[in-house]
Structures are given as structure tokens and as C-alpha cells.
Design a binder for these strands. Structure first.
Length: 941
RNA sequence: GCCGCGGUGGUGGAAUCGGUAGACACGAAGGACUUAAAAUCCUUUGGCCAGUGAUGGCUGUGCGGGUUCAAGUCCCGCCCGCGGUACCA
């Protein structure tokens, strides 16, 4: 009986679809469980074998949970707004929607072939108006809310207004515009002039997590700083809760640590310094209040508001020149150039403790966006201040006994204070505390907690994104009425920015809001009386992905993001699977968004993702051929990898990437290579055995050309992309699923190496053959032991996400059962259930074969998904005897077997009496004998 | 620089609580079947040494120390690789 995987897989995929067996109801007597994959951006390249790794793992878990009797929500959708489709549109004129939909179709087709148990009825697409309706809705909620620091919660902004109406007499005197401007400082979604990351090449601003080392993450284009009026989300207000919430969720330590660093809490003090000859003080932030006695200068960020207050007339020209220079440099230039720069303002501050006069400088090593944009510099104990002091020849006063600051600063927070007035003799830790108390009591400062986390810039000057439900009246933004949502993305004549530099939506003609008739109208009608311009920016990529998990719960609901009773049933994601690259982007924004909706009472859980697992990346494994470039080279001769270190070839070959799909176990398919590209048509080879002739076709099969290999990123240009469709065509989806798990631990990154897939495929074939003549007979003790060992192992593995160790367990069980010639339904049926999460198609077929001879066939268990997960009966695992490895001084010399429950003393007695023991003791008396019952015996001589 | 993760045969990896290191596969070598190939099956396979052989001995988890009857696993000090982050005061 052949294992015809393609017939089996298409048969069951069709049957499952027809019976709709993966449909998930929103009410059930069963306990609920929510397994979520990070939804993909549907790129034009389609899926490669790296993408499904996490999906397979979560699919195994989801199937396992259903077999255990849970009602499992396991949906899939598409993060379908984004730059690539729009860039493609600009180049080719193809509408991004067309490209996106085609890519989605391809993704769905590929995903369906792998046999996931998704409920496709719950599919969502972020670019679908019925979906972004709720993205826009959430934005409007944020616009009309503020964060109350007293309760640490978002509240309707109407509460703030009532408070002002009652307690603040100035409020009523303000014009409507002035009132709106004041409210803007409190809204959770607000417009502000902010220093943004502007990417000229992409023509848009980017969030901090979309920029890495001064380049855009997408495309790698330079990014510069600009001040622009943009929509922002007040994520920073939630910094404390985002940090503290990490303690209550089951994520990996490394991911939590990344988020903690990104949020960057630091506890310190704000202190006031007066400027000599001025009344108004300025405020700095420091975590080292204990070092005030060592402050020898002050530094302001170039963008600091204090700058204009302290610059003296003599210094004005020099300062202006410096500010101009800072402005013209991009972030990347600043990072690359680490030279110390700065300029003296001409003013002096007064040290509140020593009353000493200290010069005030401006330098770009101080950031405007952190703390107060001003610092007190303590060169003895901060390496940056030290470098600055050395450059400008400023004094350096050590404050810790024994600290040598002649070469570098002493940054460690340890030692005894000196030169520090009343702090002298204290340990640094105590001194920090004492100084905090001092400044609080004297009123020169206060204890303050600062966060690194910044507000998220929420505007993008792009077409292919969610439109803002915003129109402008007298330059102030107003939200569309909720009942008018969704505001659909308009058609445009051109996807590029307009001639006068407006975002692409400036090209739309139907893009104005009629306040009276509550509809979108032609922008030629704008009169700023009843018809107003609509916002031209769109939302960023993370808008649609921030609350998508909630929408899956109730994706057909057109009255709410999610109905309260449905949310109350599913609550939150129990298991979230995805890449760790989203640690500082999506996973922060999503938690923020969720907390906001929670504050307003729309959902019932404060955290979206209870448990999170990061699957590792699948890297590419590239193959190389080695072109001979030595003397007499024709450019047409290729040397086998095993020979390239030989003296005659060493240093005379050039490695060339070769398509991994024409290489099998590192052996090149010669004919396929010649057909691959015209330049290789007449390729000649020096084969592994050192010969180069293959004119005798009878010998040709014997000749092998060995390719070299390397682990690299999976990419088209390295010809190392492996498509799951090809693997499925050759081996079947079940083999693909098993092999992806077999490759190694889920969370580790590893190269895709097709060497080895045959082993997994052969295992399935062997297992398959055991299901040929199934009989209804009583299983033996040995058979039951094998089965229950497997049940125990697989259950443990799935609970612990150790999927890679399950495949060997199945192989061992198969070996044991086949050695026992087991063909009993009672055993094989259970094995099929255990295998079902991993290899659902073959398991279904095996299950059906068992059911065909069963006398207990019932309607409920017609598919293996409706079966029950087996429970391990430990009684079958009990062995009659116990084997003890016997060590002498820690080295195992022989094994000793005795009855299971032999007492410790008896084991010791028997081992000592053993003839081998006498041999190894060699006449010596043992000093000590250690018996660990059920484990080991160690004899110390 | 800082934070996190990792380093085990020719390869992927296993060893889940400190208790027989190398499970299970791949590859390789040899053999069976075959006109031949594919497929399948069997045997061997960390290294070194001794022995015709069964077998025995030594060595071995990046390096150097330590704790322990016993260390891949725990502790201290390094080296290397990968990922994240960076003038955050």
C-alpha cells in the first residue's frame, strides 16, 4: 500500500471544508481557548518555508486543545495596508488594492495546502472598510479621551471640560479655538508640532520603532529630523502601566526585558538651577542627585526652550551657527560622528548647594525629548560629561574616595562620598536617598520618574492606509460622527504626493466633508461654512494590527468592535505566537490600545496576550559552486567543493550562489544547472573524485559535484528561498509540518536545511504501512507500554512547546510497535489521535481506517478532531525490574539489574557482592557507597 | 558600551530534577535484493589506543578554575557567535 500523500491530503482538506469542521461558535458549554498567530503582511514573494514555522506550532497547540475538549478560537487574517504595495503602485500604476488582494489569494491558497485548522469564516483584512471602521472608531475614542494621572486611566474628555467649567474661571472666557487648543494638550490622540523622523525617499514620517540607526527599517533609506504638525498617540501616559503589566503576563524574560528597556523607567530628581542675573530658574533631570557637589557646568539640548533665555549678546552669533549646524545634520550623521561638539551660551548658573557659578553650554549630546532637555554635568562620574569637560577644558571634581578620574570617568554607583559637604562618608546608594530628601525638603527640586518611551507619531503621508475620520474647521480638527463610519479610502489619480507637496490623498477629488448632510463630497465645494477639508494623512501600519485580535472574536458585527458578551466569553488571547522583532513596535502599541479600550470599559481584560511564544527565524542555507579563475581559466569550469583547498585550486576559485532547489544533499544536479541559466549551458566540472570527464554516460551517474554551503538570510538574491508548495508537492504537507518541527527547538533560529526531510518522510511511510491490516484484538502489555509512553511524552511536549522532541518519540514508538508486529486497533487508533495535531491528514486517514473496523462508530467521532485526547495510564509504564548504572569514582563500569522495589540497603548489598564489583575494587575497600533509588549507584574508592 | 540568547560528533539536534553524554534523524561506509537504477531492508559510525576477535582502556559537551560521591547541567573568571538597543543624564 503506497503512501499517496497528495491524494490523502486533498481528500481530507476537501472533506473538512465541506463539513465545516473548523467552524468555531461564540457560545459553547466547553471551556474557551484562544490561539493566535501574528497575521502576515501579504508580500508579493508569497510564503517561504520560514513563515509557517510559528503557524505549525500554534496549529499543533490549537488542535491539541480541541482534542482536550476546548472550544478553540484559531483565526487567520491579513495585515494588508502597507508600503510595498504602494511603492509598487507608484512604479507601475497598479492599484494597491489589486496587488494586495492577489497576494492575499496566493497566501490563502498556500496556507490552505498546509492544513491549518483556521476558521476561515473569521478572516479579517485591515484594508477592508468593515474592519477599519473600528480602527477609525478607536481613534475617535482616543481623540475624545484624556489620561487622568490621578487614576492612571483614560477618561472621556467631557469630564475634564466639566471640571474646568466648575473650577477654572478662565475656561469660559476662551474662544472655541483657544479651548480646542488647550484640550489638544490632553487628548490621547492629539495633533502636535513634533520633531519627527522624516524619510524623504518614502515621502513620509516614521515612528521610532520604524527607524534603525538612522535608516528606515523598510527599504533602508536615510531618515532626517523635521518639525511637523502630526497626529500622535499619548502612549507615554501609559508607560507606568505598560511596565507594571509585564509582571502579570507569561512572556519570555528576554521579550519582557526588551520592552522594559524600551519603556526605560528611571527614577531620579528634577532640580531647579537659577541663572545668574535672572529670576526664573530652569529645571534639569538627574538620576544622580548625590553628585550635585561635582557639577562643573550645565548643558542644554540645542532645541531646548531655555536656549533663548540664556544666550548672551556676545555669544549669540556663535550659538546661532552651532544651532544651524545641528539642524542640518541627519540622525545618521550624528550617530556616525561621535566627536564632542558644543557652544558656550555666555551665562552662568548657580549651584544650589555650593552657590558656585557654573557655565551653561549647548550640546547635541543632550536630547530635547528626554527629561527636561537640560542636564547638570558631573564629568567625574559620567563618561559623556567627562568627554565634554576634557574637550572644553572644564574642571573635573571627583566625589568618591579613591576614584581615579585622570583617564576616564568613574561611572559606577559605588564607594564612599567625598568633596560633597553633608554627604561625605556616605555610600553612594545612601547619598542618593539623602540628597533626594534634602532637595524635597528645601524645595529646590522633587523626586521624579522619567520614561524613555515616547508618544507614537500616528500620521503617514501615504495613500495605502486608513483615512483619519477627521475634518478641519478653522484649522482645528473635528471628528466625523460615529454613525458615519467607515470613512472609505477615496480613489486618487496618482499615488504620489501632489505637486505642492501634499500627501497623496491631496489628489482625491471626492475628499471634503459636508457637515450638514453628513457625507463625503467633492472638494471643489469646500466653503469652510458647512463643507470642510478632510485630513490628507493616513494611519500607520500598527493602527490596524493593534486591536485585530478583538475583531476575530466577532468579525461580522457591524454595531461594535466586539460585542460585550462575546468579549466576555473569549476574554483575551491565551497563546500568541510570533516573531520577537515586534517587541518594541506592535507588542507595545497593541498593549497600549488594549489598555485604552479597557479603561473606557469596551473590553474586559487589561492585557491582550496572556502567554506569548516567539518562534525563531528560519534562515536560508545557500549553496555554492566554485568557478575556476586560475591560469587558463575559461570561466566555464567548476570545481567540486571538496577539492577547493587542494594546492592546484586554492585561491583560484570564485564561489557563486546556486539555486538550492537544484541541489540535493549538497550534490548538484548537473543537467538542471546547465539548464538553469544560459551562462551555465556549457559548464564543465571537476567532480568530487578529481576527474573531469563525463563523456561516458554510463559513468555519468557515478560522478558527483559537491556544492559548498553557508547560512544566510533567506532571500531571492542568494537563490536560497524554499517555497512550501514545492516541499508539499514532493513530500506532502504532513511531512513539511513534521519536518519544520523536527528541525530544532521552536524558539531558536535555525537554517532551513532540506537534508534530513527524507528521514521524516520515511517515518511516515513506515507508520502508514502499519495501518494496512488492522484487527480488533487485545493489545499486549508491551504494546500498551509503548503506547502509554508515547501518550505521556507527547502530552508533556505539547504542554511545554517542545515540539521537536515529539517526532523522535513517534519514531521510537513506530519502531517498537513495528518490532512487535502490532496491528491492533486499540493501539493504532490512539496513535492516530496523538499524531493528529502534528500531521492531521495522514492521521485522519489512519483514524478512519481504525473506525472502519470499529464496533463503536458514532456520529460524533467521524473525524479525528472530534476524538478525545488519550490519557496516560502510569500502570502500563511500570517495569518489573530496575537497572542501575554502577559507577566507580563517577565512572560507569557496568549495569546491575534487580527487582523494582529492592530497598536501598539491599541494592547496596547486592552490588557490593557482584562479581564485577570485586573486579573493579581490585582488593580495595570502598570508602563510601551512594545509592540513589531508581537512579544510580556510585562506589567511592 | 549595555541587555538578552547561544556554543555538544561530519550535520540538525537529544539528555525535561545534578545521576549511563551523543537519543532520534541526516550524511557516510559496507552488505542484501536488482540486468541496472530507484525504492526498501540489514550492519557499522564521537576521537584515540590495544586486540584476529568478542572486548578492554583512555579521552571527550568553547577555554581556565571551583563546588560535589557525581557537572553538558550549579558557581567564579574568560573567549567566540547571534539578536536587540544605544549619547536616556
Amino acid at each position: 500500500m503506497d503512501y499517496n500523500f497528495s491524494a490523502i491530503e486533498s481528500k481530507w482538506q476537501q472533506a473538512w471544508a465541506e463539513q465545516n469542521i473548523y467552524h468555531v461558535p461564540n457560545q459553547s458549554d466547553k471551556p474557551h481557548f484562544y490561539v493566535l498567530d501574528m497575521f502576515p503582511y501579504p508580500s508579493g514573494a508569497g510564503l517561504h518555508v520560514g513563515h509557517p514555522l510559528g503557524y505549525i506550532a500554534s496549529d499543533i497547540y490549537a488542535r491539541y486543545k480541541s482534542l482536550q475538549g476546548f472550544n478553540v478560537l484559531h483565526p487567520m487574517g491579513f495585515d494588508s495596508y502597507g508600503l510595498p504595495a504602494e511603492q509598487y503602485a507608484i512604479q507601475t500604476g497598479t492599484h494597491p488594492e489589486k496587488t494586495t488582494f492577489e497576494n492575499i489569494d496566493r497566501y490563502i491558497e498556500q496556507l490552505k495546502k498546509i492544513g491549518f485548522c483556521y476558521d476561515w469564516d473569521r478572516e479579517i483584512r485591515t484594508c477592508d472598510p468593515s474592519y477599519y471602521h473600528w480602527t477609525q472608531w478607536a481613534f475617535i475614542q482616543m481623540f475624545h479621551s484624556y489620561f487622568d494621572p490621578r487614576t492612571q486611566k483614560a477618561q472621556p474628555i467631557s469630564q475634564l471640560i466639566s471640571e474646568w467649567e466648575a473650577n477654572d474661571p478662565t475656561w469660559a472666557t476662551l474662544s472655541e479655538k483657544a479651548q480646542q487648543e488647550r484640550l489638544m494638550n490632553y487628548r490621547i490622540a492629539y495633533l502636535a508640532d513634533t520633531k519627527v523622523n522624516w524619510c524623504p525617499k518614502l515621502g513620509t514620517v516614521l515612528a521610532n520603532d520604524e527607524v534603525s540607526e538612522g535608516l528606515s527599517v523598510r527599504g533602508g533609506y536615510p531618515v532626517e529630523q523635521r518639525v511637523m504638525r502630526q497626529w500622535c498617540l499619548r502612549v507615554s501616559a501609559y508607560a507606568g502601566r505598560l511596565l507594571e503589566g509585564l509582571d502579570r503576563i507569561d512572556w519570555t524574560d528576554s521579550l519582557k526585558e526588551t520592552q522594559r528597556n524600551w519603556i526605560g523607567r528611571s527614577e531620579g530628581a528634577e532640580m531647579q538651577f537659577t541663572v545668574k542675573g535672572q529670576d526664573a530658574p530652569f529645571t534639569i533631570f538627574t538620576t544622580r542627585a548625590d553628585t550635585v557637589f561635582g557639577v562643573t557646568f550645565m548643558v542644554l539640548a540645542p532645541e531646548s526652550e531655555y536656549v533663548k533665555r540664556v544666550v548672551t549678546d556676545e555669544q549669540r552669533e556663535e550659538v546661532e551657527a552651532y544651532l544651524q549646524r545641528c539642524k542640518s545634520r541627519t540622525e545618521r550623521e550624528r550617530i556616525a560622528d561621535r566627536r564632542v561638539t558644543g557652544v558656550f551660551t555666555g551665562s552662568y548658573a548657580i549651584n544650589p548647594l555650593t552657590q558656585g557659578e557654573i557655565p551653561i553650554y549647548i550640546s547635541d549630546y543632550v536630547l530635547a525629548g528626554y527629561g527636561t532637555g537640560a542636564i547638570m554635568a558631573v564629568p567625574a562620574h559620567d563618561s559623556r560629561d567627562y568627554a565634554f569637560a576634557r574637550h572644553f577644558n572644564l574642571p573635573i571634581i571627583p566625589l568618591i574616595e579613591g576614584a581615579d578620574v585622570s583617564e576616564e570617568s568613574f561611572d559606577a554607583k559605588e564607594g564612599k562620598m567625598t568633596n560633597s559637604g553633608f554627604l561625605n562618608g556616605m555610600e553612594v546608594k545612601d547619598a542618593i536617598q539623602a540628597m533626594k530628601e534634602y532637595i524635597t525638603n528645601t524645595g529646590i527640586g522633587r523626586v521624579k520618574i522619567n520614561y524613555r518611551l515616547r508618544d507614537a507619531i500616528f500620521s503617514r503621508q501615504r495613500y495605502w492606509g486608513e483615512p483619519f475620520p477627521i475634518y478641519y474647521k478653522d484649522n482645528m480638527p473635528y471628528t466625523l460622527p460615529i454613525e458615519c463610519l467607515p470613512l472609505c479610502l477615496p480613489e486618487v489619480s496618482d499615488f504620489k504626493p501632489t505637486e505642492n507637496g501634499e500627501p497623496p490623498l491631496g489628489n482625491a477629488t471626492q475628499w471634503a466633508w459636508d457637515e450638514v448632510n453628513k457625507q463625503v463630497v467633492d472638494k471643489a465645494l469646500i466653503d469652510n461654512q458647512t463643507i470642510f477639508p478632510l485630513e490628507l494623512c493616513t494611519m500607520p501600519g500598527f493602527a490596524g494590527s493593534s486591536a485585530y485580535y478583538l475583531r476575530y472574536m466577532d468579525n461580522h458585527n457591524d454595531k461594535a468592535l466586539v460585542a460585550p458578551e462575546v468579549n466576555a466569553y473569549w476574554k483575551q488571547v491565551d497563546l500568541y505566537m510570533g516573531g520577537s522583532e515586534h517587541a518594541t513596535g506592535h507588542l507595545i502599541y497593541s498593549r497600549f490600545w488594549n489598555k485604552f479600550l479597557y479603561d473606557l470599559g469596551y473590553i474586559c481584560e487589561d492585557e491582550p496576550y496572556k502567554k506569548l511564544i516567539n518562534q525563531g527565524m528560519i534562515q536560508g542555507r545557500s549553496n555554492f559552486v566554485y568557478r575556476y579563475i586560475g591560469e587558463g581559466a575559461t570561466g566555464n569550469l567548476y570545481i567540486s567543493y571538496n577539492l577547493i583547498e587542494n594546492p592546484e585550486y586554492k585561491g583560484k576559485v570564485q564561489p557563486i550562489h546556486v539555486n538550492v532547489n537544484i541541489v540535493n544533499n549538497d550534490v548538484l544536479d548537473i543537467n538542471a544547472f546547465r539548464a538553469w541559466m544560459p551562462e551555465y549551458k556549457n559548464a564543465q566540472f571537476v567532480f568530487a573524485d578529481g576527474t573531469s570527464v563525463e563523456d561516458n554516460p554510463y559513468l555519468a551517474g557515478e560522478k558527483q559535484y559537491i556544492c559548498g554551503w553557508a547560512v544566510e538570510k533567506m532571500s531571492k538574491s542568494m537563490f536560497n528561498v524554499v517555497n512550501p508548495d514545492d516541499v508539499i508537492a514532493k513530500y506532502g504537507a504532513d511531512t513539511l509540518r513534521l519536518y519544520e518541527m523536527f528541525l530544532g527547538p521552536l524558539e531558536m533560529s535555525k537554517p532551513w536545511d532540506t537534508n534530513g526531510i527524507d528521514g521524516v518522510h520515511r517515518f511516515l511511510k513506515r507508520l502508514w504501512n502499519m495501518y494496512e491490516n488492522i484487527v480488533n484484538a487485545e493489545p499486549t502489555k508491551e504494546e500498551l507500554r509503548s503506547l502509554h509512553k508515547l501518550i505521556k511524552k507527547i502530552t508533556w511536549d505539547i504542554e511545554n512547546f517542545s515540539f521537536n522532541t515529539s517526532i523522535p518519540a513517534f519514531m521510537i514508538a513506530q519502531n517498537e510497535l513495528s518490532a512487535l508486529k502490532c496491528n491492533k486497533r486499540a493501539i493504532l487508533e490512539q496513535v492516530a489521535i496523538l499524531l493528529a495535531p502534528y500531521a492531521p491528514h495522514i492521521a485522519e486517514e489512519m483514524w478512519q481506517r481504525c473506525q472502519a473496523i470499529s464496533d463503536q462508530l458514532s456520529a460524533i467521532s467521524q473525524f479525528v478532531v472530534n476524538a478525545e485526547w488519550p490519557i496516560c495510564n502510569e500502570a502500563y509504564l511500570v517495569e518489573d525490574t530496575q537497572k542501575y548504572p554502577v559507577q566507580f569514582n563517577g565512572k560507569v563500569r557496568f549495569t546491575f539489574e534487580c527487582a523494582k522495589d529492592t530497598p536501598k540497603e539491599e541494592v547496596e548489598k547486592q552490588v557490593l557482592a557482584h562479581e564485577d564489583t570485586q573486579k573493579y575494587l581490585n582488593g580495595q575497600a570502598p570508602k563510601k557507597v551512594i545509592v540513589v533509588p531508581g537512579r544510580i549507584v556510585n562506589i567511592v574508592m
